[in-house]
Design a protein around this nucleic acid. Structure first.
Lengths: 193, 193
DNA sequence: GTAATTATTTGATTTAGGTCAAAAGTTCTG
DNA sequence: CAGAACTTTTGACCTAAATCAAATAATTAC
């Protein structure tokens, strides 16, 4: 009962974009495996190539990089989202991103090799990837706008909207670096209310 | 001789990502048409749905939106790049983006209907879309980093790098709004040298 | 359960870049 | 080619947020 759910969530996610044949479901099931990360655990070290993509069932993962010795959060990922180091994962080369668990996280994963197999044999998987990337695209554009033209206060409000279900579970310092403001400023913003 | 080149450029572009069969080349050729925009001409009005995607052969297009009565540049596109209003084009709904020509621009275009036909009949087109979006992804992430943590000067330097072949052809005011700084600040930055 | 970390808040001061205003340059257009 | 209409530059002043510094508060570990 307290065990990880079946592949139900992940299939539902795919079916937002494509119809899953029984055969594809079977091939997916063979390649998707559960995994659990404890709070604070490192999911990906930037010194390694990202070879797995994680689909979150519960918990929060954070993607970040190091600048001037400080951790800068790039994004946070919650339930029903895929997480990997995008460039590293697709080009099979190192990139700057680390991934860790902000809280205990239950996920599935698929390896890049298995994913490539599915792309090669199921054209609908290519479509899934194209369409799902499209939605992320929109978020990126919105974020760029939000960063460029708003006060620190507005940035924080936008963040709360974007991450409405998880924002209160993310430590202040991480949020500040995500927004590109100092944590002192963020602390003051939150104090005003 | 002074006429628009053949579909050569566009085929070369596709072949960076996939192998083009003779049949696909034929089907593409049937659906790709040339078009020319004069300097200052509006390519897309945000009151309309974006139904064509333009592949630039020569010239520069600008994608922008209006905020508080002012035009804010979202990106600039030069040779060998596709231009459309992404969300509008794929979801077939209105979005906030206008597109205009910064200089006289020669392009090809394909309609969203034709593109959908190709996606439905040529799985390699899905792959092309997935892979080419992947590269744009990387640029977006870099841009987000660049906007968040750099001084106005560094933002401008990054802009020059990103748009190394066209940056000097874009009016200062448009660059400033792209970078999220005022044009006075940009003017002063450029003056220092 | 208390010491030791780590995270957050508060205060004082500084500064990069914004705002407002006007002058100087450029480029369209009839 | 002259006047209108933009575009870019320059100057004076102001403000939001950064920086530096230290005090609290909250977790974590033994």
């Amino acid at each position: 009962m307290n065990k990880i759910k079946t592949t139900e969530n992940i299939f539902t996610h795919f079916e937002k974009f494509i119809k899953l044949s029984e055969n594809l479901k079977l091939e997916l099931s063979k390649r998707i495996k559960p995994i659990v990360f404890q709070k604070g655990e490192l999911v990906l070290d930037a010194n390694n190539i990202s070879k797995k993509s994680y689909f979150i069932n519960k918990g929060i993962l954070r993607t970040y990089f190091i600048k001037d010795g400080k951790e800068i959060s790039e994004f946070f990922s919650g339930i029903d989202e895929w997480v990997n180091s995008p460039k590293s994962f697709m080009q099979r080369e190192k990139d700057i991103y680390y991934i860790d668990a902000i809280e205990k996280t239950e996920a599935y994963f698929i390896t890049v090799n298995d994913l490539v197999y599915l792309f090669d044999n199921f054209p609908e998987m290519e479509r899934y990837a194209r369409l799902s990337m499209g939605t992320i695209f929109g978020h990126f554009m919105e974020r760029i706008t939000s960063i460029r033209f708003t006060t620190a206060k507005e940035k924080y409000t936008h963040f709360q909207k974007t991450y409405s279900n998880i924002y209160h579970r993310i430590p202040l310092g991480m949020v500040a670096s995500y927004l590109g403001i100092t944590q002192e400023t963020l602390s003051r913003i939150r104090a005003v209310k």
